[in-house]
Measured scan of single mutants.
Amino acid sequence: TDVTFHVNGRNLHLKGADEELLRRIEELIRRGADIEELEKAVKEWEK
């Protein structure tokens, strides 16, 4: 799945995201995470 999140005026584009990653990103956004936290979560998922 390709999806782009718009967070605090910045874009986080995910290519090939699975349901697990999407749920994790949505949860972080609900908690008020900043873009750096979201990018870190994506990097951890990519490993």
Rank of each mutant, 00 (worst) to 15 (best):
T1Y: 15
T1G: 09
T1Q: 13
T1I: 15
T1A: 12
T1D: 08
T1M: 14
D2L: 07
D2H: 05
D2M: 05
D2Y: 06
D2E: 09
D2C: 06
D2I: 08
D2Q: 04
V3E: 03
V3N: 03
V3T: 05
V3Q: 05
V3L: 06
T4N: 05
T4P: 01
T4Q: 03
T4D: 06
T4C: 13
T4M: 06
T4F: 06
T4V: 14
F5R: 01
F5W: 03
F5P: 01
F5S: 01
H6W: 08
H6R: 08
H6K: 08
H6G: 03
H6D: 11
H6A: 05
H6V: 15
H6P: 03
V7G: 02
V7T: 03
V7D: 03
V7M: 03
N8S: 05
N8M: 04
N8F: 02
N8L: 03
G9V: 02
G9M: 02
G9C: 06
G9E: 05
G9S: 02
G9I: 03
G9Q: 01
G9R: 00
G9H: 03
R10W: 15
R10D: 14
R10L: 14
R10Y: 15
R10G: 15
R10H: 15
R10M: 15
R10S: 15
N11K: 14
N11H: 15
N11A: 14
N11R: 09
N11S: 14
N11Q: 15
N11E: 15
N11C: 15
L12M: 04
L12C: 02
H13R: 05
H13E: 10
H13S: 07
H13Y: 12
H13P: 01
H13I: 14
L14S: 00
L14Q: 00
L14M: 04
L14T: 01
K15W: 06
K15H: 11
K15T: 09
K15N: 06
K15E: 05
K15R: 08
K15Q: 07
K15V: 13
K15Y: 09
G16S: 08
G16F: 07
G16Y: 08
G16A: 07
G16N: 14
G16L: 06
G16V: 06
A17G: 05
A17P: 09
A17K: 03
A17I: 10
A17Q: 02
D18W: 02
D18P: 15
D18Y: 02
D18I: 02
D18C: 03
D18T: 15
D18A: 10
D18G: 13
E19F: 11
E19Y: 10
E19G: 11
E19N: 13
E20Q: 13
E20P: 09
E20A: 14
E20R: 07
E20K: 14
E20W: 11
E20L: 12
E20Y: 12
E20H: 12
L21C: 05
L21H: 02
L21S: 03
L21T: 09
L21M: 07
L21W: 03
L22E: 01
L22Y: 04
L22A: 03
L22K: 06
L22M: 07
L22Q: 04
L22S: 02
R23P: 01
R23C: 06
R23T: 12
R23F: 09
R23I: 08
R23S: 09
R23W: 09
R23N: 10
R24I: 12
R24Y: 14
R24S: 10
R24Q: 13
R24T: 13
I25G: 00
I25Q: 00
I25E: 00
I25Y: 00
I25V: 09
I25T: 02
I25P: 00
E26K: 13
E26Y: 10
E26R: 14
E26G: 10
E26W: 11
E26M: 13
E26A: 10
E26L: 14
E27I: 08
E27D: 14
E27V: 10
L28P: 00
L28S: 04
L28V: 01
L28Q: 05
L28G: 05
L28F: 05
L28D: 02
L28K: 06
I29D: 00
I29Y: 05
I29M: 06
I29P: 00
I29T: 02
I29L: 07
I29A: 04
I29R: 01
R30F: 11
R30I: 12
R30W: 11
R31F: 10
R31H: 14
R31M: 11
R31E: 13
R31P: 00
R31I: 10
R31S: 12
G32C: 06
G32K: 05
G32N: 06
G32Q: 04
G32F: 04
G32H: 04
A33N: 06
A33I: 05
A33Y: 13
A33E: 08
D34P: 05
D34R: 07
D34Q: 08
D34G: 10
D34A: 07
D34K: 08
D34C: 04
D34W: 05
D34S: 07
I35R: 01
I35L: 08
I35D: 03
I35H: 04
I35M: 13
I35V: 05
E36P: 13
E36T: 07
E36S: 06
E36H: 09
E36G: 07
E36D: 12
E37A: 10
E37K: 07
E37M: 13
E37Y: 10
E37P: 02
E37D: 12
E37L: 09
L38N: 00
L38Y: 02
L38I: 06
L38A: 03
L38M: 08
L38C: 13
L38T: 01
L38F: 04
E39I: 14
E39W: 09
E39S: 06
E39C: 05
E39G: 05
K40T: 12
K40A: 14
K40P: 01
K40H: 13
K40S: 12
A41S: 08
A41V: 11
A41R: 07
A41N: 07
V42E: 01
V42K: 03
V42R: 03
V42D: 00
V42F: 03
K43H: 13
K43F: 11
K43A: 12
K43I: 09
K43R: 12
K43E: 13
K43L: 12
E44S: 10
E44I: 12
E44M: 09
E44P: 01
E44K: 08
E44Y: 08
E44Q: 10
W45E: 04
W45P: 03
W45L: 04
W45K: 04
E46H: 11
E46P: 13
E46T: 13
E46F: 09
E46Y: 14
E46Q: 11
E46C: 07
E46G: 13
E46I: 10
E46S: 11
K47N: 12
K47T: 13
K47C: 09
K47R: 12
K47I: 13
K47L: 14
K47D: 13
K47H: 12
